[in-house]
Design a protein around this nucleic acid. Structure first.
Lengths: 215, 215
DNA sequence: GTCTATAGAACGATAGAC
DNA sequence: GTCTATCGTTCTATAGAC
């Protein structure tokens, strides 16, 4: 069984890389900067990960898998709970965004990093990262989309599609604008920021998804 | 008076640069690729713009200024129209997002480029681009935020702040996910895509901003 | 498993001829 | 205003000693 000590070279590289990647994206992250920050040798990246591309994939796996797994688990629970009845939108929204906030609240120092990292993955060079999309995002999107169709009967199919697109875009945008949150919310305490944002994002999404169709 | 022919070296560089920048960001755009695509000499960039940084600023000015000017003009008109009464949310949302869709609909070939370009500016290396934020975005954000405070009296100040943050994040996210629009909307025709998205985004934003406060 | 050293290519920027 | 040529730097990746 392979050991994964918190301070192994491999872990140090991952920690350093995700900070730089979150801030600057794939092309802005040089292996020199990563290994310098990690305090390890330049050649260690290629030894442990094989290439820069594979290092990025490892970053994705580490952060996206837990969040998306939880999203699927919570959806499964809701399905069992409601049986053949459609799941209320409020609960569906909760299952989609709560895991994100949960991830944000843990790890005080890595918070800003984790937030941007995931979003950066979604927008960074679609050709290079299409495999990441397929691996990590597509399963979640498919499930929630299907469920949303059942749960908002008053809207036509193409309208549900568009709202879901907007909802997902909102989550993406929030993550990317994390640095601007202070300015928008005009509140100092980071804890309070998250409290308010979590509450209002629930309200925002609920209103957005259930609002009447455009005239 | 300086001439600006459509096919000047300067214009060719701008056109080539915005395509590559929109797709790959600052660090992913090399001047070699730009000048190759533009069919001009490598040295031309530094002659016409001075540096890579200044070229990016020129890209921002070309695309952001028209959209944000229109947003401010429409807000000014709404203020005159409603006098001392608060502006209805529906009209405020329209003034904020209509200019974006208007820009998207014109220029069939440059459409996907323009969409991502603006969003890329907002998230690309905050340190490098903080001047772009201050110059192009801050005035618009300030005005709309003030107006929104007056127009949603049933929410507390900090709740309005949070909703506005979400609203802006939605616009940003939509732009960045432009390539995934096909997959989400499951519709072929690009015209129809924009029609539906524009309608439903109005509804989405309206519901989101006016929905009841979180419990 | 970790290091030094370096290959080989691409980068931004500039000097100077035309 | 546009070209060629090139400087100095930085990049990913690898070879080979320990």
């Amino acid at each position: 069984m392979p050991k994964k000590p918190v301070d192994s070279t491999r872990e140090r590289i991952l920690r350093a890389a995700e900070g730089i990647y979150a801030a600057s994206g794939f092309h802005g992250m040089s292996l020199r900067d990563v290994t310098l920050l990690a305090g390890v040798n330049l050649a260690a990246v290629n030894y442990h990960f094989g290439s820069k591309d594979k290092l990025i994939f490892a970053l994705a796996d580490r952060r996206l898998t837990p969040i998306n797994s939880e999203r699927l688990e919570r959806l499964e629970k809701l399905r069992k709970k409601h049986g053949r009845e459609p799941i209320p939108v409020r609960e569906l929204v909760g299952a989609l965004i709560d895991p994100m906030f949960k991830a944000l609240r843990q790890g005080k120092n890595t918070r800003a990093i984790t937030v941007r990292l995931v979003a950066q993955m979604m927008i960074d060079d679609p050709r290079r990262f299409s495999q990441i999309h397929k691996t990590f995002y597509k399963p979640v999107l498919d499930c929630y989309h299907t469920e949303l169709q059942r749960t908002i009967p008053q809207l036509q199919s193409h309208q549900v599609n568009a709202r879901f697109f907007c909802a997902f875009a909102t989550v993406l945008g929030i993550r990317l604008m994390h640095e601007s949150m202070d300015w928008f919310l005009k509140i100092r305490s980071e804890e309070r920021q998250f409290d308010i944002l979590e509450d209002e994002m629930h309200a925002f999404m609920l209103g957005a998804l259930t609002g009447p169709p455009a005239p």
